[in-house]
Design a protein around this nucleic acid. Structure first.
Length: 104
DNA sequence: CGAGTGACCGCAA
DNA sequence: ATTGCGGCCACTC
């Protein structure tokens, strides 16, 4: 069975997030096979390729990441540019914009 | 090559 | 409501 690296699976999942939606680190980690590796997802995001829409990845609270290039301000700008509403506290209505990919 | 760190999450007090 | 601690994997120095 060809099992790709955790990092590769995470990248594929993030690439699959449609425009205007967001996913949580824990959710991605869970789909990748390790519900406790939510931290790893953040690490991958930090050193991951910029061709991946990491800005659509937020924490469970819907809060934006602090290590995003340009800071939260830039991160917020990216999300608002896709039609999402970001609070002044740099939070999105996670329960409203959360995206759940097809399970099989 | 070894050790430390990290864009998190959940639980306990 | 806040604070503290453990746990996973990958990457950097």
């Amino acid at each position: 069975m060809s099992e790709l690296s955790f990092r590769h699976r995470v990248e594929e999942i993030v690439r699959g997030i449609p425009l205007g939606y967001v996913m949580t680190y824990g959710q991605i980690a869970s789909l990748a096979g390790n519900p406790l590796a939510s931290r790893v997802v953040g690490g991958i995001a930090h050193f991951g390729d910029l061709s991946i829409p990491w800005h659509r990845v937020v924490n469970k609270q819907g809060g934006l990441a602090s290590g995003y290039p340009g800071g939260k301000a830039n991160h917020k700008k990216q999300l608002t540019g896709e039609g999402l509403m970001v609070d002044k506290n740099y939070k999105v209505e996670i329960n409203k914009y959360i995206w759940w990919p097809a399970i099989r």
